[in-house]
């Protein structure tokens, strides 16, 4: 028996919105520890990794580890039937054919339940080493979203350069070119969540497809902060912490010299 209850059901809506344009089908693994998902996009250029700890749920029970093969677009359709303030409960048997979703309005006046058919999905799991990255940038997620959106109008590839002073995002295209630099905040600058913080061992410059970075920014509603982890010649990690429950991280392979 698997049962997981989230008072803030809208969180689940936001998570599926943040994944479904990149990944169509995925296995969500449920264990005593919580929910995890690892899935690549169809072209194997990027990977999305979701982690929701059991302690972040209001109620969590998982007697036996199970894998839920989900069509994320279809799950998104069902979650659209939930109100934004609804409490959402997920339920499945030990050898499930379906996932039951129950939505309860805050005053308990409306209770609905839906069953989503599960699928057998063959996935390739990648072993991702626990790496110490040379640069970690923490910045407001809305700022990152704006930069990616703005630069995507000009070109396809973004050069991200991280130095102690700041992070430079550069693009060039047929119409011209552009750069946006965000500088490290000084300690006196306002709110923690509005700050840009850079931890750097050595400067890093990498090239990335803006199209994918754009997919990742669908996670912006999940939190005020995004973290970018970079080292030379390896995929970037774009990590969105989800307050009190876990995180969603995207890995994107760089564009490299031919």
């Amino acid at each position: 028996m698997f049962e997981a209850r989230l008072t803030e059901g809208s969180l689940l809506k936001k998570i599926i919105e943040a994944i479904k344009d990149l990944v169509q089908e995925a296995n969500v693994d449920c264990s005593e520890e919580g929910l995890t998902m690892q899935a690549m996009d169809a072209s194997h250029v990027s990977l999305c990794s979701l982690n929701m700890r059991h302690g972040g749920f209001d109620h969590y029970r998982c007697d036996r580890s199970i894998s839920l093969g989900l069509n994320l677009a279809n799950l998104g359709k069902i979650l659209k039937c939930a109100g934004n303030d609804d409490v959402v409960t997920l339920k499945a048997e030990d050898e499930p054919d379906t996932l039951t979703l129950m939505f309860e309005s805050p005053n308990q006046e409306r209770i609905s339940d839906f069953e989503l058919k599960l699928m057998d999905i063959e996935t390739e799991h990648l072993g991702i080493p626990n790496e110490e990255y040379k640069c970690t940038i923490s910045m407001p997620s809305g700022e990152f979203q704006r930069i990616v959106r703005d630069l995507a109008v000009i070109g396809e590839t973004c050069i991200i350069t991280c130095t102690k002073e700041g992070v430079k995002f550069s693009v060039s295209g047929d119409l011209g070119n552009g750069n946006v630099t965000v500088r490290q905040s000084s300690a006196a600058d306002g709110d923690e969540k509005d700050q840009v913080k850079i931890q750097m061992e050595e400067p890093v410059t990498l090239n990335f497809a803006l199209r994918y970075l754009g997919f990742f920014t669908k996670a912006t509603p999940l939190g005020s902060t995004v973290k970018l982890h970079m080292s030379p010649d390896v995929p970037i990690v774009v990590e969105y912490p989800i307050d009190g429950i876990g995180s969603i991280s995207y890995f994107l392979a760089p564009k490299i010299d031919e």
């Binding site: 690549m40 072209s43 194997h44 090239n207 995929p235 564009k255």
Partner: peptide, 14 residues
């Protein structure tokens, strides 16, 4: 020119 690398160039299949 630059080409898009695949994740398989960096991570092993489990």
């Amino acid at each position: 020119g630059r080409k898009q690398a695949s994740l398989f160039s960096f991570f092993q299949k489990k």
